[in-house]
């Protein structure tokens, strides 16, 4: 009787499993399929150029077709003209990629690792809701936005310098984010001189680059009014100015002490600021050379060559 019961129990269990498995059988076997559609590679010559020169070697996509998600909802901008996209891309090669390739211990390998994954071209500035404009942005070290691309022309050096100041500023942030610049070294030099949040614009007199505006920044030991807003911006502004300013002009503006024989207090203050800028200049060159492997003066010389 016990054997019979055991047999019945086994039969019951097997039957139950079989019925369950059979009734739950799917008609199709589950196979892994891509959730993304395979988009065809563009045959547009402009896209092919950008792929060959930026995406393939540096993993960087230049976004020149308008997609509104690349712009904050409270900002406004227009896309670039198609005819300026390639010349500006060429300029990025000449005035950004090649200088860094020349200045890096690693040659091209440095930018292959750290060049931003996305560069967004906009035709206009980014118009903020409060009436101000933004000239460029860097997001999380992977995307840089270049504005006012429609103002490009080959002989417009003002545009080139302004735009590449912005790009080199934003790339300095990317370097900072990857190599952790020693912010304490700047605090030790200028800890008291940074402006409180949102007030750096009070140093602007006329335009951001007017002599008075720059002097206001120099008095605080920074190279521009925007540089006074935080250590990170101070660092990015110095890097940007070093690369994009003729060395003699940089020396005369930011380093060489003025003669303050008239007892002008502002003059004395600027000279104190210049001594601080000299310290930061040395710290930045050393950091870039020793920690990042970039000779910033070679980058500068190569950049300035592109303007000639």
């Amino acid at each position: 009787m016990k054997k019979t019961n055991n047999f019945i129990k086994k039969l019951f269990t097997i039957s139950l499993l079989s019925v369950t498995l059979i009734s739950c059988e799917r008609e199709k076997s589950i196979t892994a399929e891509s959730i993304f559609e395979q988009e065809q590679e563009s045959t547009d010559p402009l896209d092919i150029y950008l792929k060959e020169e930026f995406r393939d070697p540096y993993g960087s996509v230049i976004i020149y077709k308008f997609v509104d998600r690349y712009i904050d909802a409270n900002r406004t901008a227009v896309p670039p003209r198609r005819d300026v996209v390639r010349p500006v891309a060429e300029l990025i090669k000449q005035a950004w990629i090649e200088p860094y390739n020349m200045g890096s211990d690693e040659g091209e390998d440095f930018l292959k690792r750290y060049f931003p994954a996305e560069i967004v071209f906009l035709g206009s500035p980014l118009y903020n809701g409060d009436g101000t404009i933004t000239l460029g942005t860097a997001d999380a070290g992977v995307r840089v936005t270049l504005t006012q691309v429609n103002d490009y022309s080959p002989d417009n050096n003002d545009w080139i310098i302004q735009s590449f100041r912005t790009l080199h500023h934003e790339f300095a942030h990317i370097i900072d984010q990857n190599f952790n610049f020693d912010v304490e070294s700047f605090y030790e030099i200028s800890g008291e001189d940074y402006t409180s949040p949102g007030t750096w614009t009070t140093l602007i007199s006329g335009s951001e680059n007017s002599t008075q505006s720059i002097n206001n920044a120099i008095s605080r030991g920074m190279v521009t009014p925007y540089g006074t807003s935080s250590v990170a911006e101070d660092f990015a502004e110095i890097v940007s100015r070093i690369i994009t300013t003729d060395p003699i002009e940089f020396e005369n503006t930011y380093i060489t002490l003025e003669s303050c024989s008239g007892g002008d207090e502002d003059c004395f203050q600027r000279n104190i600021g210049r001594q601080r800028i000299q310290e930061k200049y040395n710290a930045v060159l050393r950091y870039m050379k020793e920690d990042v492997g970039i000779d910033l003066l070679i980058v500068r010389d190569e950049f300035l060559n592109t303007l000639n």
């Binding site: 020149y64 077709k65 308008f66 227009v78 896309p79 003209r81 198609r82 035709g123 429609n150």
Partner: peptide
Amino acid sequence: FENYTTFH
């Protein structure tokens, strides 16, 4: 319209 033209 993805690039700058009359609408922009």
